[in-house]
């Protein structure tokens, strides 16, 4: 089996290249740790809904928010949480103010709490009353790193697999081995498949190490299932690998692979949920729909923070799989440049 031969060769090559393995696995750990150390918050305008609250409370809340408090029932609010349209819901339960936080975004959590606390302290007769606070997703222990960290796992897996995969496939061309391969009866799809499978094995290890480190060492918020998270991370890595091998066909040397980073990788980071997109122009938001990382990062976040299952995320997974398939087929065609057969 020729695919098998390519797979075995790639594994042997990589095992000899300890530095590349280190880049693939430990560089993401290092960078994620750094982000974990330095992460800081941004100002955020929360969206708050209320039901049956006293007029004076509503008034001060509105003053704090500088906009109207939306009226909705608790079940409507929960629906809005699922659609990510709302940050908090306030009502009075048993004569005590009750606050339900959406909870998955710590920036929003603290913004909501700040507004509510200021509101209560400005009501002179309510000074000693503390509201009951509950979380729809997550808990008060969730911090900013828990939220962005989950996206960062996706980003760094994508980034490092892209760089290493792209350069390896490119080297096949620059060192003349691709030409040698193409003088043999190997078929183009066998080369591409061999590459994806061979490198794929290493990305499984990479995904495993990174996810384990983030969940058990950095103790990032993890509501979902470890193995399901691993599946998503791995799928994202394979997407990056397929894209990298495809794009390496359009690079003539290692430096040109690096040139793809600001064009292909960095925009994905900006548009895939590390930063809040809601304030962005609509046409820019549409761009993010064409980026694999958007779906990968979303799925990772849903599993880690909201504890969702793969079944709930079938759309994300299907789209990622579609990207892999698309890049794979395009790659087989791109190799036609080197041999038509």
């Amino acid at each position: 089996m020729r695919v098998g031969a390519v797979v075995i060769r790639i594994i042997r090559q990589l095992l000899r290249d300890k530095r590349s393995i280190a880049l693939l696995i430990f560089a993401p750990l290092l960078v994620i740790t750094l982000v974990w150390l330095v992460l800081d918050g941004d100002p955020y305008e929360p969206k708050i809904a209320a039901e049956n609250i006293p007029a004076p409370l509503e008034q001060v809340l509105q003053n704090e928010l500088e906009k109207d408090v939306v009226q909705m029932s608790e079940s409507e609010a929960k629906e809005a949480f699922q659609k990510e349209d709302l940050d908090a819901f306030i009502t009075i339960k048993n004569h005590v103010p009750y606050v339900l936080l959406e909870g998955s975004d710590p920036t929003a959590n603290s913004a909501v709490m700040k507004v509510i606390q200021t509101a209560f302290s400005s009501l002179s007769d309510q000074k000693n009353i503390q509201p009951d606070v509950e979380y729809y997703y997550g808990s008060d222990k969730i911090n900013l790193f828990d939220q962005t960290g989950s996206v960062l796992i996706g980003f760094f897996v994508f980034f490092f697999v892209f760089v290493l995969g792209g350069i390896s496939f490119l080297r096949e061309r620059t060192q003349g081995t691709l030409e040698k391969l193409l003088s043999t009866p190997i078929k183009r799809w066998e080369i591409v498949t061999g590459y994806l499978l061979g490198f794929g094995l290493f990305t499984i290890i990479q995904s495993f190490v990174i996810v384990t480190y983030c969940v058990y060492v950095l103790d990032i918020w993890m509501a979902g299932d470890f193995w399901q998270l691993l599946v998503v991370t791995f799928l994202l890595a394979i997407t990056a690998l397929a894209l990298a091998t495809l794009l390496s066909a359009f690079a003539n040397n290692e430096l040109q692979i690096m040139q793809f980073i600001p064009i292909v990788i960095i925009p994905q980071a900006f548009f895939s949920g590390i930063f809040n997109l809601e304030t962005l122009a609509e046409w820019l938001q549409v761009l993010s729909k064409f980026m694999p990382l958007t779906y990968g990062a979303d799925a990772i976040q849903e599993i880690m923070i909201k504890g969702k299952d793969l079944v709930d995320l079938w759309q994300d997974l299907l789209i990622l799989f579609g990207f892999v398939l698309l890049f794979y087929v395009l790659n087989i065609f791109a190799l036609k440049k080197h041999r038509r057969l």
Binding site: Q13, R16, Q175, G176, T177, K180, L181
Partner: peptide, 16 residues
């Protein structure tokens, strides 16, 4: 299958 081709550059995997 019945052609052996040796290119101008050494098409070898350096790590192997």
């Amino acid at each position: 299958k019945s052609i052996g081709y040796m290119a101008q550059s050494d098409a070898l995997y350096q790590e192997l």
